[in-house]
Amino acid sequence: MGKSERKIRTWHIVLGIFALLVIGVAVAYRQLSQPLPESAIPADYKPDIENGRIIYTAGGCISCHRGIGPHVELPAGGRKLKIPGGEITVPNITPDEKTGIGKWRAVDFLTALRRGLGLDGTHYIPAFPYTSYAWMTTKDILDLYHYLKTLAPVRNETPLDTHRFDRFALAFWKWLALPKRPFRPVPGKSEEWNRGAYLVLGPGHCGECHTPRNSIFIPDRRRWLAGAPHLSEKGHVPSLRGLKRRGRYKDVNDLFQALKYGESLGYEDISSGGMGEVQRNISKLPDADIRAIATYLMSLE
């Protein structure tokens, strides 16, 4: 074999590897952009609207999706949300056919919450906290969908800001960041504790702010709820670990009252940084759920 022949051969190998890499990334991207199949919805599923309302409250959906002006009590979207590195327009999630989720099938909604994927395959940015919602049970997500469908539709165009490369990178980020399966109760823990853990981890998405993120912005599960820099303001989001040891709350009942009444009963630490709004949402949950959240949080060392 001549020298030039060998050179050509080397180049062929390099190009071949490169082509394979490109094809590999393309195939992976395609895979990561697939919606869930219709079969993801259990055949025996029956909507429970009241449970959907509870999940809607626990998730505090209204806090980001709140409409403007006359639609302030509906999740008609349109507000600007500050995120690290920019600003987004929060989408309309009322059941309007044209500008909301009116045309969405249940499985589309499930795909959005569990995979962070839009109707047209758009990879949502994680300001929509799907990395928490993916912990939710299929039933709770579907109940939430059916609850949203009962709301008054509002026509309000809320354009998604699309940056092609960002969305491409997001597909791979989500692959790393999304939990692989929904929440499963921890054996040996009480039903109340597990309910609390579920609400905090899944719908409540507390970890989005209270858990520090690693270098690629994924919440660091080894430092779960250990406090983090605030994402949109100066200052810190407090740690929810060792609440009793650090003297933040006396006992479960103390934290229960803090979550239920907030600063109207003098709990001054849960008003600023957006927590005032979160507390207002929590206060609307059934007492048993608020108590479950308090039970779980007070158990964290």
Binding site: E233, K234, S264, E268, S271, G276
Partner: peptide, 24 residues
């Protein structure tokens, strides 16, 4: 009466006009 003061006074103001603490 206490909750009116705490809710419409303290909470209302701190929610909008007070920065988060600078510590964990």
């Amino acid at each position: 009466a206490v909750m009116e003061l705490g809710g419409k006074g303290c909470k209302a103001c701190h929610e909008k006009f007070r920065k988060p603490k600078d510590e964990m």
